[in-house]
Design a binder for these strands. Structure first.
Length: 732
RNA sequence: GCUGCUGUAGCUCAGUGGUAGAGCACUUCCUUGGUAAGGAAGAGGCCAUGGGUUCAAGUCCCAUCAGCAGCUCCA
């Protein structure tokens, strides 16, 4: 007999080899029917597996997972991936299976198959899947030892699985498989008891991928799908996808004239059109005022700086690949730079240059007027490098700034600092340039020139905690004022096994402990992610959920014990001795581009009144009322509103329609009636006609809405059921 | 950066190797209106760029640039 302990602490005895399903059945047949998987000792496992096989713990702690538990969705989706793979194999013989894990709200499976799969094939695959599901065949688990498993996969002609067992799973003695009808797959599980549990699914897209995610490897075809316990949930999810498409900031940005990206200017370089620029400057003004209140000092710094500066800070060497090429003062600068990198044995692409190549480079240098007479042709690489570096150091070499911090550091260093001056908080909307991979660029969300609402705090070690706390508070405040109150914080820590980080272990420990302590104390919902820290320090990123439940990484607060060290920053303490300050980098919005892009999607282009580029549009009933309309316009304008008059010769219905489509928050309709009364008729974009009222009344109503930054959205999201389900790790 | 798809009017898109198309927007004229589309006419194009095949290329081929999707990356 075995003893099982349920979440309510009750303990029961069951015969050996009992499964979670048996336990469920003993409680009730409906529960047995609803049980999808089980959680034992924190591990999600098959409901049909003998309990004692899973854990050594006695009594066995068991939690039954039903369709109501989010964890169950991951299990369902992985099983659906198997069903999809089975269907694909049936339809297209010769398929080689790769991996097929679950994702936040779906799953995919990678196939190696000559014949390209297109969306036109989806209907066929789906109907094959349907007939598989109809048979309600069980998922059966069995284990084989290494040799048997290899033979087994080889026998099925699954060479990728064979390769995976030999490489990725080299340290596994036994391997588990799941059988479902004629389909067998190497898989860690868990799976649902039988395919009949898949009540609703849909194939979503097909895309290319690589074996083990490496572009050097063979290309695979990846089929994406999603699965749910009910048709209703599936439809809800599909609606969410549609809604997300409708809100695409690239489409809305074009339609509403917010921003544009011109090929002539360059990839990933965002041009703010007047309407977008207004939104941005309102946000900047808002945060600037807030910063002044909180003891920040605005500064300005140029867009470029000497490459040496960024070599000193560590950014240039570390992020060289994602930087724009340096600006060289000498035409030959780039060639020497190339040479230096080629000679440097530390460089990844290091290939020893041949004597012939070296000779050619020397000749080219001579032609370009570079004096390398000291170059030791038969000397050591180090000696050669020294000559080249010496020449380079004498030249102008600038970088488009990838970060603002080195400039702010220089401002800090421009005068002696006393402990009485600290913390020094230097703030700048600093535009930085990063040469992101072309495939990564995406509207305003991923650009090559971005403006951070940046600031750097220089403080004593004792002040770190308080400064970090108040910074978090600032981010909270800022997000709240644009109606973003649903977020979590990701605390990114270093990976203790990696050597990519700079600074001492003690400093890291101290920094991480401080962040953890403040976040805990302030009651933040946060998770720790080891290995995700920046190379110079741990960071706390704000992951903000928009009204569709999508997460965006926006604001960030980062601790830095490294730059003060590298730049030898100091302040004089009360003991009259020099001490090293600590730096905090922080950007509540992250970047203006990304933040505004996110806001466009969050509001579906319909900004709240205080941010709307065009707040009010006057719609004269006919040309006869144009004069009065202009009079009303000037009254609103002197009250501070962004307002226009629709002067088209169209019926008021058409003007209203246009204003609605342009997402103008308020329309003011004026005709003979209003003119006679010296009044206006107000129409709300969301609630429609508000009736006639005196101009003053309309103005003060709108003023109040602006002042309080009221957010009214016509969109009622109901995606509560489809928050990202926990991802179940079910790959080998 | 890699793979695939795409690039035609300001926007959204049709277009079979043989004369460049539609709807919306725009301009003009008629219409002067009461809470989501009044009517008519007109203007608008180096069919992304550069090569090639062909008697003939928006259409077929190659390259480049850009966009999209996915992969990989993100200070």
């Amino acid at each position: 007999m075995i003893t099982v302990k349920l979440p309510d602490e009750t303990e029961k005895e069951y015969p050996e080899n009992s499964s979670a399903l048996d336990v469920a059945a003993s409680i009730g047949s409906r529960l047995a029917d609803a049980t999808v998987a089980a959680e034992i000792d924190g591990l999600i496992v098959d409901a049909m597996r003998p309990l004692e096989e899973v854990t050594e713990t006695r009594p066995i702690p068991l939690r039954l997972l039903t369709e109501r538990d989010p964890e169950a969705l991951g299990v369902l989706r992985h099983s659906c991936a198997h069903v999809m793979a089975r269907a694909v194999m049936k339809l297209y013989p010769g398929v080689n299976l790769a991996f097929g894990p679950t994702l936040g709200q779906g799953f995919y499976y990678d196939f190696d198959l000559e014949r390209p799969i297109s969306e036109d094939d989806f209907a066929r695959i789906e109907s094959e899947m349907k007939s598989i599901i109809k048979q309600k065949e069980p998922f059966e688990r069995f284990s084989l030892d290494r040799d048997e498993a290899l033979k087994f996969c080889d026998g099925m002609d699954q060479s990728l699985k064979v390769e995976h067992i030999e490489t990725g799973l080299a340290d596994h003695h036994t391997l588990s498989f799941y059988r479902q009808g004629e389909f067998v797959d190497l898989c860690r599980g868990p799976h649902i008891p039988d395919a009949g549990k898949i009540k609703a699914f849909k194939l979503l897209s097909v895309a290319g991928s690589y074996w083990k995610g490496d572009a050097q490897n063979r290309r695979l075809q990846r089929l994406y799908g999603t699965a749910w316990f009910s048709k209703k949930d599936l439809n809800k999810y599909l609606n969410q996808i549609e809604e997300a498409k409708r809100r695409d900031h690239r489409v809305l940005g074009k339609k509403l004239g917010l921003f544009t990206i011109s090929n002539d200017v360059g990839q990933g370089l965002c041009l703010w059109q007047p309407k977008g620029a207004i939104v941005r400057s309102l946000l900047e003004d808002f945060i600037k005022r807030e910063l002044l209140n909180r003891g920040y000092e605005p500064v300005y710094s140029p867009h470029i700086g000497r490459a040496k500066l960024y070599e000193m800070s560590g950014h240039f060497p570390y992020y060289r690949d994602s930087q724009f090429t340096p600006i060289f003062g000498h035409d030959g600068g780039q060639m020497i730079d190339f040479w230096i990198r080629k000679l440097d044995p530390k460089d990844e692409d290091y290939v020893e240059p041949s004597a012939d190549e070296e000779q050619k480079l020397l000749e080219a240098a001579a032609v370009m007027g570079i004096d390398l007479s000291a170059f030791p042709k038969s000397g050591s690489v180090e000696d050669k490098l020294q000559v080249l570096r010496k020449w380079q150091d004498q030249q102008e070499r600038y970088l488009l700034k990838p970060m603002n911090c080195p400039h702010h550091v220089q401002i800090y260093k421009s005068q002696p600092r006393s402990y009485r001056d600290l913390p020094v908080r230097l703030a700048e909307f600093g535009t930085v340039y990063r040469h992101e991979q072309s495939g990564e660029l995406n509207g305003m969300l991923r650009v090559r020139g971005l403006t951070q609402d940046d600031a750097h705090l220089f403080c004593t070690p004792d002040q770190v905690e308080e400064e970090f706390r108040s910074t978090l508070e600032l981010v909270q405040f800022v997000l709240k004022s644009v109606g973003l109150e649903d977020y979590r914080v990701v605390l990114s820590l270093r990976d203790p096994d990696s050597n990519k980080y700079v600074g001492s272990a003690e400093n890291w420990d101290r920094a991480e402990a401080t962040l953890r302590h403040v976040l805990t104390e302030a009651g933040f919902n946060f998770v720790e992610e080891p290995g995700e820290a920046a190379f110079y320090g741990p960071k706390a990123d704000f992951m903000v959920r928009d009204c569709l439940g999508r997460e965006w990484q926006l604001g960030t607060v980062q601790l830095d014990y490294n730059l003060p060290e590298r730049f030898e920053l100091e302040y004089i303490g009360s003991d009259n001795a020099a001490h090293r300050p600590v730096m905090i980098h922080r950007a509540p919005f992250g970047s203006m581009e990304r933040f505004v892009g996110m806001l466009i999607e969050h509001f579906a282009g319909a900004f709240p009144l205080w941010l709307a580029p065009e707040q009010v549009r006057i719609l004269p009933l006919s040309d006869k009322h144009l004069d009065y309309a202009k009079q009303v316009e000037s009254q609103f304008r002197s009250a501070g509103f962004r307002i226009t008059v629709d002067q088209h010769s169209a019926k008021v219905n058409a003007k209203i329609r246009q204003a609605q489509l342009d997402l103008i928050p308020y329309m003011v309709i004026v005709g003979a009636q209003e003119e006679a009364q010296g009044a206006v008729s107000l129409r709300d974009r969301i609630d429609g006609d508000l009736g006639e009222m005196p101009i003053d009344e309309a103005i003060s109503k709108l003023k109040k809405e602006v002042k309080e930054k009221i957010i009214r959205q016509s969109f009622e999201a109901d995606f509560s059921g489809i928050e990202a389900a926990s991802e179940v790790s079910n790959e080998y």
